[in-house]
Design a protein around this nucleic acid. Structure first.
Lengths: 148, 148
DNA sequence: GCTTGACCTTCCAGTCACTGGAAGCCTTAT
DNA sequence: ATAAGGCTTCCAGTGACTGGAAGGTCAAGC
């Protein structure tokens, strides 16, 4: 199976497969005489695993761990569960961040007439004194999405 | 006011201020004889505006638009409101994505015993046939956070 | 046997919003 | 005078890709 077929069979694009190989998430596959990558059914199976993990928001590094857990026949199911729940907690942390932003902004927008006049509390609030997201997360709070 | 003072007065780090200048979000400030950046109170005010916008999850490009809306005395408040609500919609879209991931994963984890035995439905589900996030978002669905 | 087009290969650059660090100049306090 | 700390520029790296160029390969149709 060449890379294009592996891509459509797994749902991982050819570009991404090469990238995953480059960063060491997956091993280099066999090559044909012409130098084409040649994937076994097992490798395609692994690519599907990777795709589903990615769809659940796991990073490449986390997927490395998941693959290790997958192939480790002696690990306890609690190891997997702990890993999964830690990720759930992280997803929920990001959700709370987004929700706080959305709520603040919706609240500001509610007080804005939204008509043809220039007066606008949204802009005024941004330009005036106090914090956009109130008291709780003070320092080191709103990291952008990639906080690892 | 030099860059360090402007940074602590605005909550935007010196590194970020230079970066914002470099990418054209803010204009080059005056310089002292020694070549130090010298910020006026108005510029510090603008930096605070930027910080609050950033805390609400606006991108640099969106902040450019917000600054334009801020300084445009003739724009309608509806322009600002529309812009804000579009961003709220985007934040909510990302929240839904995260929620779908978290729910799927929590659901998988619930069926996992989490004990010392190796058998684990989480891994089995990832490695077996069907989709991680069920039927709705089929193609072009789960883009990572940076989908502009 | 040749052409065409679709595929494959590698490599390099760009994305976004920063962050870290090196090398060197400036200011301030002691 | 010197030391500490702040400022300057520039370059490189982050994560997870994506796009594109230049060139080799393969299968089908003529």
């Amino acid at each position: 199976m060449n890379i294009g077929q592996a891509a459509s069979a797994s749902g991982v694009s050819a570009k991404m497969i090469r990238y995953y190989e480059q960063v060491g998430l997956i091993a280099s596959p066999a090559r044909t005489d012409a130098g084409y990558r040649d994937y076994s059914p097992d490798e395609v199976h692994m690519l599907r695993f990777i795709r589903r993990a990615r769809d659940l928001g796991f990073s490449v590094e986390q997927m490395t761990n998941l693959l290790a857990l997958w192939s480790d026949r002696s690990r306890a199911s609690s190891d997997v569960k702990r890993f999964a729940m830690a990720h759930v907690a992280e997803l929920e942390r990001k959700m709370r961040e987004l929700r706080a932003m959305a709520e603040t902004l919706r609240h500001l927008a509610k007080t804005c007439h939204g008509d043809e006049r220039p007066n606008c509390p949204i802009i005024e609030e941004l330009s005036s004194g106090h914090e956009a997201v109130p008291p709780k997360p003070r320092r080191a709070a709103v990291r952008r999405y990639g906080a690892h």
